[in-house]
């Protein structure tokens, strides 16, 4: 099991967020984490990434307890692909991707040929090697997201966590990034991705993890569990599922 979460509970000082949450994600799958705003999707990701330590329960990544691993060891197992963000400094794409190699280097080292090769391989696998000398901040949102994915690949971890990777992208780039996530899963990575859009989960994800009120209300293969009832329950709205040539479509009932 790439990721196994058992009885995870997490509270902020004023309110509980995650309540007794358990699931296991097998190797080489794309898991979509679904749920309304504020349900704790990001908190779950933060706990798995080791950014929140005050939780109860157990989080295992590739058989190791996240709490037991120092930052460097953890970074060799899990890579985080954040939302596209601005950076006040103008790094080149190469500089940005090279930062992914830092868990394999001693603190005093600077990147050498080995790291540069790893970065080039990572850029090639998402098809951005032609951008390597461009400035990161001048790229489009879709390209920036690909750079952040390449950085995670350079990190050489087998588990990838994506926090709403499509949130600031246009329609075409959303499809491009989600395709990329799916092909990474096909290539053996375990990808855990939070998303606002159940349609994305339905189209691209192998598994869906549905959260409501901090609890798991559904976990399993997407096509088996993600139905109109579950979506209606999660988002407090009535939907119908319409079948089309390219898969199921989720339609809000009011619009029909």
């Amino acid at each position: 099991m790439s990721i196994s979460v058992r009885n995870l509970c997490f509270s902020y000082p004023d309110h509980p967020v995650l309540k007794d949450l358990s699931f296991e994600a097998p190797d080489g799958v794309l898991v979509a984490v679904l749920g309304p705003n504020g349900v704790g999707k990001t908190t779950l990701l933060r706990c798995i990434l080791g950014l929140e330590n005050h939780y109860q329960g157990q989080i295992m990544v590739q058989g190791e307890d996240v709490k037991d691993l120092p930052a460097r060891q953890l970074a060799r197992r899990i890579a985080y692909i954040p939302q596209v963000h601005g950076n006040a400094f103008g790094y080149s794409v190469m500089d940005m991707v090279l930062m992914g190699t830092s868990p394999m280097m001693s603190p005093a080292a600077v990147p050498h040929q080995k790291q540069i090769d790893a970065a080039m391989t990572a850029m090639k696998s998402v098809g951005i090697e032609n951008l390597k000398n461009r400035s990161f901040v001048h790229l489009s949102g879709g390209e920036q997201q690909l750079v952040l994915i390449a950085r995670a690949l350079a990190q050489n971890a087998k588990v990838l966590l994506m926090d709403e990777p499509t949130s600031s992208l246009d329609f075409g780039n959303q499809a491009m990034v989600l395709n990329q996530a799916r092909s990474l899963a096909r290539g053996g990575y375990t990808v855990l991705m939070s998303t606002h859009n159940p349609q994305h989960a339905l189209w691209y994800a192998d598994y869906a993890l549905a959260l409501e009120g901090g609890e798991v209300v559904g976990f399993g293969q997407t096509d088996k569990i993600l139905d109109a009832d579950l979506i209606s329950r999660l988002y407090k709205m009535r939907v119908s599922m319409v079948s089309s040539r390219s898969g199921m479509l989720i339609c809000p009932e009011e619009s029909l």
């Binding site: 950014l51 930052a71 460097r72 890579a79 985080y80 930062m99 990190q155």
Partner: peptide, 14 residues
């Protein structure tokens, strides 16, 4: 360089 990415990102980079 890694610190300029912010705390969370730098920590996930080890």
């Amino acid at each position: 360089n890694l610190l300029t990415l912010g705390d969370d990102e730098a920590r996930t980079l080890g």
